[in-house]
Amino acid sequence: MGYPAVQFSRVVKAYGEGETEVRALDGVDLTIPTGELVAVMGPSGCGKSTLLHLAGGLEHPTAGAVAVNGRDLSALDAARRAALRRDEVGFVFQRLNLIASLTAVENVALPLELGGMSAKEARPLAVEALASVGLSQQLDRFPDHFSGGQQQRIAIARAVVGGRGLLLADEPTGSLDSRTADEMVELLASLPSRFGATVVLVTHEPRFASWADRVVFMRDGQVVDQTRTTPPDEPVVAPADELVP
């Protein structure tokens, strides 16, 4: 406790070199407090996915530092980084989240088994995680037996199983119809209060972002603004000086 779930300090992420260099992130300072749902919005190509990849330790910054639960990722050796990724971070993508040859419960148990747990120990935890996302039937069926919305629920269960506290979701509603997508976002929004989890949700949809405690706007690799978390009836006052040309 005490540390934010994720802290970006002057983070730059560049791909390519010289003439062809692309700065996917260009000096990002961002704090994601523990136990919040934070939505990230911005036009396509502005760096949202890159931000998630760095927050989850899938990629490393070109400059600056990323800390997860107070630990600077670049100060960890490869093994510790892998362990942190496995034990503390879960990803949900737009699609292709599940392994087709494993059953629902096996998919969810997989990260625990990769962490060294026996299948026997992992199973009840996987079943519990599936129940927490509203799935308690036919858990031994393969992913293609389930609807798109159910598959995304299984992916969420896999991301939070074993008490992992940081869930990074990259347009997870992209392939769902609007009603299923609504339910999915409502489920994601319930994770902070139910489990103390931190959720970072990349989305294009204002109605989904409105569930968030905080909404971060990006443009060209930078964070350009964010909504403050204020009590419902407290007016949000914009600093007027910024807006006077």
């Binding site: 204002p206 972002a209 603004d225 949000v236 910024e242 040309p245």
Partner: peptide, 29 residues
């Protein structure tokens, strides 16, 4: 705002969007 220049236009667009999203958040809550 755009009449005052692109940069100012972008700043006002950005701010208006943030405030509208904050309004949506309040309504949702």
């Amino acid at each position: 705002a755009i009449e005052h220049g692109h940069q100012h236009g972008l700043r006002v667009v950005t701010r208006q969007r943030t405030e509208l999203l904050a309004l949506l958040q309040r309504k949702r809550r």
